[in-house]
């Protein structure tokens, strides 16, 4: 059995706004094992970024509020650490790569300066040794002329190179967990392929666990082992990549898979959109949050929230269609495939 690295239980995060309290994350539980790539997918506003920002303790409080839950990492609850204790974890044992490489580097410090910062802070390296290590890190992420590049500023780097520098920085302290929040979304496809391949290769080399947040199901198929599908602040289906792509059970997962055209099919089938909008999380609906957009909604879906059902080992889904009294719906037929 694989060793559990991170264990999130019953996480609830809320934000106070003028319109009311937004329930961004509504009871999320999951584990990340050592050396594993776990993808968290879902549409914008479903709470995936808030979930990982909570792990990093980067939620601004107030307006944010981690109302409930625990995040166990290395035997301790991260939510109970003091800020100075957390600083030994953040950037050191858990590192993060953000979506937009343009805004996540500081424009007024050289790249070398920023790369050395975690090394000096966490690894207690002296300036010269830190620089040496920074050169190695840049070389590892395939940036040519690493030594000269260290003296340059972020604006002298292209988008793909900035993202690679960010990854170098995140990995410089050999973290046990790397959180990558849409690391390739802002990049062109050829650069995206470079970044995804780089992550895969680095994972193999350094055995870092990766938590990947994305909405691109293609990227997930390429690199992840496990997938969690999030909707309206909850994980509604989870399983191995093969479970989710071959035997998806939740109508929302079917919808996500049918809404994108595939490059490798010849016939042009009409896309199947998911009509409607995700619910307002200030006042989340009673019952299943997806029922208003679901083609198979039954009366019970509007009344009661579905419990998580284990389909097979590791494959869990929250849907009333799994109930023994519910009509049987097959996913292939459901979306006309």
């Amino acid at each position: 059995m694989a060793e559990v690295l991170l264990s999130v239980r019953d996480l609830e995060v809320r934000f106070r706004t003028y319109a009311g309290e937004v329930q961004a994350v509504r009871g999320v539980s999951f584990d990340v094992n050592k050396g594993e790539v776990v993808a968290l997918v879902g549409e914008s506003g479903c709470g995936k970024t808030v979930t990982v920002l909570s792990i990093m303790r980067l939620i601004q409080i107030p307006p944010g509020n981690i109302a409930r839950g625990s995040i166990i990492f290395g035997g301790r609850d991260l939510l109970e650490l003091s800020e100075s204790e957390m600083q030994h974890v953040r950037g050191n044992r858990i590192a993060m790569v953000f979506q937009d490489p343009m805004t996540s580097l500081n424009p007024v410090f050289s790249v070398g300066n920023q790369l050395c910062e975690p090394l000096i802070l966490h690894q207690h390296l002296a300036g010269g040794a830190a620089m040496k290590r920074a050169v190695q890190m840049l070389e590892m992420v395939n940036i040519p002329n690493a030594r000269e590049r260290l003296g340059q500023y972020p604006f002298q780097f292209s988008g793909g190179m900035r993202q690679r520098a960010m990854i170098a920085m995140a990995l410089s302290c050999n973290p046990e967990l790397l959180i990558a929040d849409e690391p390739s979304t802002a990049l062109d496809v050829t650069i995206q392929a470079q970044i995804i391949d780089l992550l895969t290769e680095l994972k193999r080399k350094m055995d870092t666990a990766i938590m990947l947040i994305t909405h691109d199901l293609g990227v997930v198929a390429r690199i992840a082992q496990k997938v969690m599908v999030m909707y309206a602040g909850k994980i509604i289906e989870r399983g191995t990549v093969r479970d989710i792509y071959r035997q998806p059970r939740h109508p929302y997962t079917w919808g996500l898979l049918a809404a994108v055209p595939r490059l490798d099919t010849r016939e042009k089938k009409r896309l199947v959109p998911i009509y409607g909008q995700p619910p307002d999380l200030i006042d989340p609906p009673k019952g299943c949050a997806f029922w208003q957009r679901c083609n198979y909604a039954m009366k019970i879906c509007t009344e009661m929230e579905p419990e998580s059902v284990t389909v097979s080992d590791g494959h869990e889904v929250c849907c009333w269609l799994e109930h023994s009294m519910a009509p049987k719906v097959e996913w292939g037929r459901a979306v006309g495939q």
Partner: peptide, 19 residues
């Protein structure tokens, strides 16, 4: 070849040209 295809089995066997 850079476009990932949402299918883990297809992805595992695809040859990619990384520019």
């Amino acid at each position: 070849s850079a476009i990932p295809i949402p299918d883990p089995d297809v992805e595992a066997e695809r040859r990619r040209i990384i520019l």
